[in-house]
Computed example of a mutant assay.
Amino acid sequence: MKKFVGLVGTNSEQSTNRMLLQYMKHHFSGEADIEVVEIKDIPVFNKPEDKQIPEEVQVIADKIEAADGVIISTPEYDHAVPAALINALNWLSYGIYPFVDKPVMITGASYGTLGSSRAQAHLRQILDAPELKARIMPSSEFLLSHSLQAFDEDVNLKDQEQVDKLDGLFKDFLTFVAITNQMNHNHEQNKKDAANFSWEAN
C-alpha cells in the first residue's frame, strides 16, 4: 500500500481543505495510507545563514522524503496560495530537498465558485522551482467550490459527482506515482542540482 503525505495548505484553524484531506484519508484508506500533516506551527522563514532547519520543518521533510507521494490541498487568497504555504515551501527547499522528483497531486477547496483554480496554477509554478523540482500530476484539478456546504456532519462529500471525480483523479495519481517511480534514474543528480542552484549566479 502506498504511503502519502496530505499537506494542509493553510494555517487556518477552520479549513475545508483540511476537511478534504481528512475525507480522502478515510475514503481511500483501502488504497493508500494518507497522513494529514499540518504547517500551522512552522515559524516564519528567515533564511538563516547556518541553514539550521526548525525541528517542525525537519519532521515534515522526513515524512515527505519517506512518502511515495504528496497531496497538497490549498485554499485561494487573492488569486494565490496562502502565505503560510509559501512559507512552508520556502523552508522545505532551503538546504533540504524532499520534494525533488516527488509525485504531487494538488487539490483545493474554496468558499466561492472557482474552487481555488488560480491558487492551484500558482502552486504548480512554485513546485516547479529549481529548489523544489516536484513532479506534479498533469491535467488534473480537483476544485471543490462552495466548500462550506460540501461536507456532511461526518466530513463526507455530499455530491456524488464530486466523489466520482475525486475517485478517478486518485486512481490517476496512483498510476502517476507508479510511472514516476520508474523515472528516477537521475534522482541523485537532480538533488545535487537543486542543492547547487543559486539565484545570484544566474
Rank of each mutant, 00 (worst) to 15 (best):
residue 5 V to Q: 00
residue 10 T to N: 07
residue 12 S to K: 13
residue 13 E to F: 09
residue 13 E to H: 15
residue 14 Q to D: 15
residue 15 S to E: 13
residue 19 M to F: 09
residue 23 Y to D: 14
residue 28 F to V: 11
residue 30 G to S: 09
residue 31 E to S: 15
residue 33 D to F: 05
residue 40 K to Q: 05
residue 43 P to F: 01
residue 46 N to D: 15
residue 47 K to Q: 06
residue 48 P to V: 10
residue 50 D to C: 07
residue 50 D to I: 06
residue 54 P to R: 04
residue 58 Q to T: 00
residue 59 V to W: 00
residue 60 I to T: 05
residue 62 D to L: 01
residue 63 K to E: 14
residue 66 A to P: 00
residue 67 A to H: 01
residue 67 A to T: 03
residue 69 G to T: 02
residue 70 V to M: 07
residue 71 I to H: 01
residue 72 I to H: 04
residue 73 S to H: 13
residue 73 S to I: 08
residue 74 T to Q: 01
residue 75 P to T: 10
residue 75 P to R: 11
residue 79 H to P: 11
residue 82 P to T: 02
residue 83 A to H: 08
residue 85 L to F: 09
residue 85 L to K: 06
residue 86 I to H: 03
residue 87 N to G: 04
residue 87 N to D: 01
residue 87 N to V: 05
residue 87 N to Q: 04
residue 97 Y to V: 03
residue 99 F to N: 01
residue 104 V to E: 03
residue 105 M to D: 02
residue 105 M to E: 06
residue 107 T to L: 12
residue 107 T to G: 09
residue 108 G to R: 11
residue 112 G to V: 09
residue 115 G to E: 11
residue 118 R to T: 13
residue 118 R to W: 12
residue 121 A to G: 12
residue 122 H to E: 09
residue 126 I to L: 12
residue 129 A to I: 02
residue 130 P to E: 02
residue 133 K to N: 07
residue 136 I to R: 14
residue 138 P to M: 09
residue 142 F to Y: 14
residue 154 D to N: 15
residue 157 L to W: 10
residue 159 D to G: 07
residue 162 Q to N: 12
residue 164 D to Q: 12
residue 165 K to T: 10
residue 172 D to I: 06
residue 176 F to V: 04
residue 180 T to M: 15
residue 182 Q to C: 14
residue 182 Q to W: 07
residue 185 H to F: 06
residue 187 H to W: 04
residue 190 N to G: 03
residue 190 N to S: 07
residue 192 K to L: 12
residue 198 S to W: 12
residue 198 S to L: 05
residue 202 N to F: 02
